[in-house]
């Protein structure tokens, strides 16, 4: 359904744009129909940038994104509008997603005005109420309120209901439950998983591994803009190969396992430009000179399992 082909995003920084900052480097992966793929990374890994590039909110520096075979960079006016009919997003901060001076249901009215101007107001209200019930909200309680009168969980469901009003096929969910409370976040997560049965594909962007395991079939691990490992969720979690993935696995606080004493990475600042992005922090015994010199390519090592590390020998 959605395919990223060698996508990069480079920002020019500094006065006169002299320096370059590579936020996303040569990322390729695809998302099939009815598939939930999670994009896992820490802050600054470029995971949100990828989500925004898919939503055409940020331009792509090089590479292409294809949606159902069509390059999304070429979409204009009506083509782009049609794209948004099928591809939608929900962001991390529910309160910032609403214009604070308007009522929350304005997000529905915008969809009405922009996409379905011909539908009568009455029919539209019925559609909105149906959509709200689908996401588990009571229209009588949540409609006609200002954003600050609703809870974070309600606001996020609102945005999912908004997306459902369109002929949505693909949803970018960018950290949508990280700001919600424990007792309500699981319901939003379940709702997202249920959408799959409606034929949706989802890109689930998160830093929380257990959430990713709960909901997705496939996981992509990002480190400083580079894909270091990707594949079927079970393989990533139980047969992790990249030292970074392994480190994440042992660092995530779990309720069924205690933290192990981890090997402190020897901080090695001798890295030359062009080496492996993880070189500095890598504590693998396989670490060698090659790692410092050239970036390891992402290679397939099993069905549905890719890793970018010289240390791995099949």
């Amino acid at each position: 359904m959605l395919k990223l082909d060698s996508v990069s995003k480079i920002y020019k920084i500094g006065t006169f744009g002299g320096k370059e900052l590579c936020a996303v480097n040569n990322v390729s992966f695809d998302i099939k129909d009815r598939e939930v793929v999670s994009l896992i990374g820490e802050s600054g890994s470029g995971k949100s940038t990828i989500g925004k590039m898919i939503l055409r909110l940020i331009s792509v520096t090089s590479g292409h994104i294809f949606f159902n075979g069509e390059n999304i960079a070429s979409l204009k006016n009506n083509g782009l509008k049609n794209y948004y009919r099928k591809v939608q997003g929900v962001f991390q901060d529910p309160f910032s997603s609403y214009n604070p001076i308007f009522k929350a249901d304005r997000v529905f009215r915008i969809i009405h005005d922009e996409f379905y101007p011909d539908v009568s107001g009455k029919d539209w209200n019925i559609k909105v109420e149906d959509s709200l019930r689908t996401v588990g909200l009571n229209p009588d309680i949540v409609l006609n309120k200002f954003p600050h009168q609703l809870s974070g969980g309600q606001l996020q469901r609102f945005l999912i209901a908004r997306a459902l009003l369109l002929d949505i096929q693909f949803l970018v969910a960018d950290e949508i439950i990280s700001m919600l409370d424990a007792s309500t976040r699981i319901d939003v997560l379940n709702l997202l998983a249920d959408l799959k049965s409606r034929g949706l594909s989802i890109l689930f962007i998160t830093h929380d591994l257990s959430l990713s395991y709960y909901i997705s079939e496939k996981a992509v691990i990002l480190y400083r803009g580079n894909v270091v490992e990707m594949g079927a969720t079970d393989k990533i979690f139980y047969q992790s190969l990249h030292p970074y993935t392994k480190m994440l696995m042992v660092s995530v606080p779990r309720l069924d396992m205690k933290w192990q004493e981890n090997v402190e990475a020897k901080i090695d600042r001798t890295m030359q430009p062009g080496g492996c992005v993880y070189y500095e922090r890598c504590s693998a015994i396989e670490k060698n000179e090659l790692c410092a010199k050239s970036p390891p390519p992402l290679v397939q090592i099993a069905e549905d399992h890719f890793v970018a590390c010289f240390g791995y020998k099949p």
């Binding site: 809870s151 424990a182 007792s183 309500t184 976040r185 699981i186 319901d187 997560l189 379940n190 998983a193 929380d208 591994l209 257990s210 959430l211 395991y213 709960y214 909901i215 979690f237 995530v252 779990r254 309720l255 069924d256």
Partner: peptide
């Protein structure tokens, strides 16, 4: 009890075991 049981854990998949939140606010 409800809080602990609603927490997603590595090893729990939605397709195999559906966790539930705490209804209400």
């Amino acid at each position: 009890k409800l809080l602990i049981s609603s927490l997603p854990k590595v090893g729990v998949k939605h397709s195999e075991k559906k966790l539930t939140g705490i209804p209400g606010t």
